[in-house]
Computed example of a mutant assay.
Amino acid sequence: MPTVTDTYIENRVRVQPNDTNNYASAHGGNVVKWMDEVGAMSAMRLAGETCVTARIDGLDFERPIPQGDTCVIESYAYAAGRTSVRVRLRAFREEPRTGEREQTTTSQFVFVAVDEDMHPTTIPSLDVETERDRRLRDEALDAEA
């Protein structure tokens, strides 16, 4: 059975001029797209199947990501249903020369595993084995509350 840590993915995107809004910071729609793509990868690591976005539970933009900075997306599955996977997502702005990082965006997405005909399909349970698994899961559950 996959563990929470098995589903952990961190991805980076350098914010280029084409990614920005009128204020020279990452366009919110691009940040959501990047989060959705990485979140689906975490869900697929658990499900072993293609996963599609079913719901976004809240999306908090706390601060901008300036052009030239790196957008870091952190994603992991923290709960699973019969066909669905709940994924915690956080975005950070990272200064590429120093690695200085600040959280910018938080959300929880729900993905559904689908078969070749795009019908929901069952997935394995999500195991919590290590202290890191417990900490990540508990952080995500606390963020839901």
Rank of each mutant, 00 (worst) to 15 (best):
G99N: 10
V114W: 01
P2H: 06
F92H: 12
V13K: 10
P2E: 05
E129F: 00
E129R: 10
C71V: 04
I65L: 02
Y23N: 09
V110Q: 08
E144W: 06
A145M: 12
T98C: 02
G81E: 03
D117Y: 05
E139N: 12
V38C: 03
F92N: 05
D127I: 01
T122K: 11
N21F: 00
E10K: 11
S125V: 14
F92Y: 14
T7A: 09
M41W: 02
T20P: 02
M1R: 07
L126I: 07
Y23L: 13
D60W: 10
A24M: 12
A145E: 14
E144M: 14
N22A: 15
T70Q: 09
R93Y: 03
A43V: 01
V38A: 05
A40S: 11
V110T: 15
M118N: 15
V38T: 12
R132M: 11
P2G: 08
N21E: 06
V87K: 09
G81N: 02
R97I: 10
R55N: 13
V52A: 04
T20M: 08
R86T: 06
P2K: 11
R88E: 00
T121D: 13
R55W: 03
V4L: 03
D69G: 00
P66D: 03
E116C: 12
R63F: 00
V85M: 04
A77G: 06
D138G: 09
V31C: 05
S107N: 13
R82M: 08
V38I: 13
R63D: 11
G99I: 05
V112W: 04
G29T: 01
R93A: 14
Q67I: 10
W34S: 04
T104W: 07
A77F: 00
S125Q: 12
V128Q: 04
Q108I: 08
H119I: 08
I9V: 12
R101L: 06
R132G: 02
E129G: 03
V13H: 12
E49N: 14
R134E: 15
Y78A: 04
Y76P: 01
D69K: 06
T104P: 03
R88M: 03
V4I: 11
D142L: 10
K33T: 04
A113C: 11
T7L: 05
A80C: 07
G68M: 02
G39R: 00
D127C: 09
E100P: 00
G39T: 01
V72R: 04
T104D: 08
V31S: 06
C71A: 15
S125N: 12
M1H: 09
G39H: 02
R86Y: 03
T5A: 13
L126P: 09
E131I: 11
Y8S: 07
E95V: 04
